[in-house]
């Protein structure tokens, strides 16, 4: 019985882990911190689901939990940095949030960088909608906003990305 439950959770995590990591990544300086956040959220979800037959949780709830853990992480990081001024975060240039499906996809690689530069409010909606597969209603409940606001943020984010892509293409055309 326990092994069956464990296997269900492992399968669930194998399917959704990368999406959760992507969402957690926007709260953290490093991938390791983001993986810690996901682990913390999984642990919280395990105990939450104890009264629900230990079934794997719904994604909107997990996103919400990661967001909550991320906020707490931010607060504790600010306090810790004040205490430990000698801690240095070394950027790992191989730490990428998103991977191109096709090799040498230059446009996708350019878009990847622009997504990281979106504001957190826009980025989290894009991540939950596009890669998380959530509806605007579910996103609204996760972020405690209206579905219209969620849809507006999504559209605004994509318009911003479209504008940046247009600029890149124009520069490329001018150089050619």
């Amino acid at each position: 019985m326990a092994s069956c439950v464990a296997e269900n959770w492992k399968d669930w995590l194998a399917e959704h882990g990368s999406k959760l990591l992507l969402f957690a990544r926007s709260w953290c300086q490093s991938r390791q911190d983001a993986e810690d956040l996901v682990q913390e959220a999984v642990l919280k979800m395990w105990h939450h689901q104890a009264d629900r037959g230990h079934l794997p949780p719904d994604l909107p709830l997990v996103f919400s939990t990661i967001r909550f853990c991320g906020l707490n992480f931010h607060r504790s990081e600010r306090r810790r940095k004040k205490r430990e001024e000698s801690v240095i975060y070394l950027n790992d240039f191989q730490d990428m949030w998103l991977d191109p499906v096709l090799e040498d996809d230059e446009d996708a690689l350019l878009l990847r960088e622009r997504i990281k530069n979106l504001s957190s409010k826009l980025r989290e909606v894009v991540i939950m909608k596009f890669w998380g597969g959530l509806t605007f209603q579910q996103i609204a409940e996760t972020l405690a906003i209206s579905p219209n606001t969620a849809a507006s943020r999504y559209r605004y984010a994509l318009e911003q990305l479209a504008q940046e892509l247009r600029g890149i293409k124009e520069d490329r055309h001018a150089q050619a």
């Binding site: 995590l13 990368s18 949030w97 998103l98 191109p100 499906v101 890669w131 990305l161």
Partner: peptide
Amino acid sequence: PIEEVESMLKRLAPAAMSEVASRANEAMI
């Protein structure tokens, strides 16, 4: 333009968890 961005987003996939994190999560579960 929005459709163009969305079709480009489809060409990106979330990066997978590291082997260490995956093993740690499985051990925890």
